[in-house]
Amino acid sequence: MNVSNNKMRSMLSEKELISGCAKGERTAQRTLYECHCRRLMAVCSRYAKSMPEAEDILQEGFMKIFSGLKTFRYESKLDTWMTRIIINTALNHQRQKLYLLPMVDVEDAGLQADEKISLADFHLSELIAIVQELPDGCRVVFNLFAIEGFGHKEIAEMLGISEGTSKSQYNRAKSLLRAKLETVKVKYGKV
């Protein structure tokens, strides 16, 4: 009961927050930003090539969130809605480069499925840096497939590429990540 009451209280405050942001109240906008900026910054850092670029995506994303709150209909959770806006903003940043994605045959990737990789040995910042080093197309497809959980068909529609390209790009991302993780492991003696 206490949990449901707290949940209800938080829902009410969230509604008030949304209402205040829709009216343009700076206090409400600041509060919403403070509540979600760290989580969304993590999302941006996965899609961006660098942290400054991630901050640009975050800034642009929040402007779209504040203007979109006026028409928010509570059809989905606020967190999910905001994350989707940030991802779309990140994709818009990368969209011009994505049409240049080369076609890579799946066979050439040379990967083995279900290979065990232990990521616990790595610091979060190292993992972020490894992801940021991926080529733009590979990075986007990797994030959408592996982290966000989209299928290759959905990714192909979102990015305007073919499903095969999406798969190829993902496989390439996997091999590159593995290779990089091996390198870092050996380099810093994380064996």
Binding site: C37, R39, A54, E55, I117, L119, L124, I147
Partner: peptide, 25 residues
């Protein structure tokens, strides 16, 4: 498992943006 591993790593992660982000917003 590859994808699961990465999902577990990034789940709930947070990074603090610099103050300039809110100033620009």
């Amino acid at each position: 498992k590859f994808e699961q591993g990465w999902q577990e790593v990034f789940e709930g992660t947070e990074f603090s943006p610099s103050d300039s982000v809110w100033i620009n917003i």
